[in-house]
Design a protein around this nucleic acid. Structure first.
Lengths: 215, 215
DNA sequence: GTCTATATTGAGATAGAC
DNA sequence: GTCTATCTCAATATAGAC
């Protein structure tokens, strides 16, 4: 089932496959059990290897974690169905992501912790986060710009600024939520989009359903 | 100069004074040199003590750092002149704080790193951050509510939600800025307040200066 | 109160057998 | 490829002299 057609006879084909499998399992474990026990040793045992066995696949601890996050983004994007069909509804996408996040606190923790650590110029995961931040903001800005043109979003501020703010809210809410799970991240993100809405002419598509909003 | 009137003959008066002095110096060092070298040992040397000497005043490392942040808030509040005269202009205050932060990257780093670490239920600084978050949002909400009543700020969302969002943006921007110092935190905070502005009737005080905004 | 010196711990990395 | 065992290192915490 699924060896595909072409021989997997590339140099490290097997090793790579195993690597990916490890990453997925690690994600699973972290999502459920939290980032707490995330020393290399604990993670190794969780995926059924010894510490040394795991480090056979990833030279260093930091590299391992960076790869875990890369994998996470890969899966998240896939889950959004964004692989082929590009995202259209930014608001919906953000809310979906927020809802999903609320179900995997361990991953949120991993993300935030690593994001902060990667702040250090020396940190191995820094390139990943730089690139990721840029990609996220660029995507946001592109979508926002489109909606500004359509009149659904305020054009009092340039899309790049709005994109940056949006990213900041998202990160900041995750931090708040890790601290105290006493609010609804998705609902709050929803509220943020209310703030972005153009004052005069609201949505071009759906006339405001007026009344029941979450939160 | 300033021994005050009453004898400092409290039990630990001297020790306490020294503690405060250490904290202020530590803040100074971190603000300039960054959080990088912030092991107890490095900090100790920076303030002119040995590691053991410093730990004579603070039982544990984490307690030391929590106290450093407490001191920082104390000084920041004082700098805002908030001690006696309560803050009136939230927008101005946020921008001032952001501008100040941009001048002490080391402190921003300390704050963000500790905020994330304090997420852990076991972390000694957790009570501090819980309390602080609550205080910040409560203050924000109170001020926002007042401005909503005056018509300067949109009332499409409850002040508590706006307060939470504001805190999130602030934290998130600091994280972004630690990663890459390629934008102006204060200007971006300013933009956020544009988003909060009521659509119909803008500011009750100043008619929109229209045109030159930072960023 | 402050130092020097040391104990302790915990983690990541490495060597070498299987 | 994977394990066991060991090395190294860094950092906090502690003991005890001055």
């Amino acid at each position: 089932m699924g060896h595909g057609a072409s021989k997997p006879r590339g140099p490290y084909a097997k090793g790579i496959a195993k690597r990916e499998e490890i990453l997925e399992r690690a994600l699973d474990v972290i999502a459920r059990e939290g980032y707490r026990k995330a020393s290399v040793k604990e993670l190794a045992e969780a995926v059924g290897l010894s510490q040394a066995g795991l480090l056979h696949y990833f030279e260093t601890k930091e590299e391992l974690f960076a790869q875990i996050l890369r994998k996470r983004d890969e899966l998240a994007l896939a889950a959004l169905g964004a692989d082929l069909a590009p995202i259209e509804d930014l608001r919906g996408a953000c809310i979906t992501v927020a809802q999903h996040n609320a179900e995997v606190p361990g991953l949120v923790e991993l993300f935030v912790r690593l994001a902060v650590a990667a702040t250090d110029p020396q940190h191995p995961a820094r390139p990943f986060f730089l690139e990721r931040g840029w990609a996220v903001r660029t995507l946001f800005a592109r979508l926002l710009e489109k909606q500004q043109a359509a009149g659904g979003i305020t054009d009092r501020l340039p899309p790049e600024t709005l994109a940056r703010i949006l990213q900041a809210v998202s990160d900041g809410l995750q931090l708040q939520w890790l601290m105290e799970r006493d609010f609804d991240m998705a609902a709050t993100m929803d509220a943020v989009f209310d703030l972005l809405a153009a004052p005069g002419g609201p949505a071009p598509e759906q006339p405001p359903p007026d009344g029941d909003r979450l939160s």
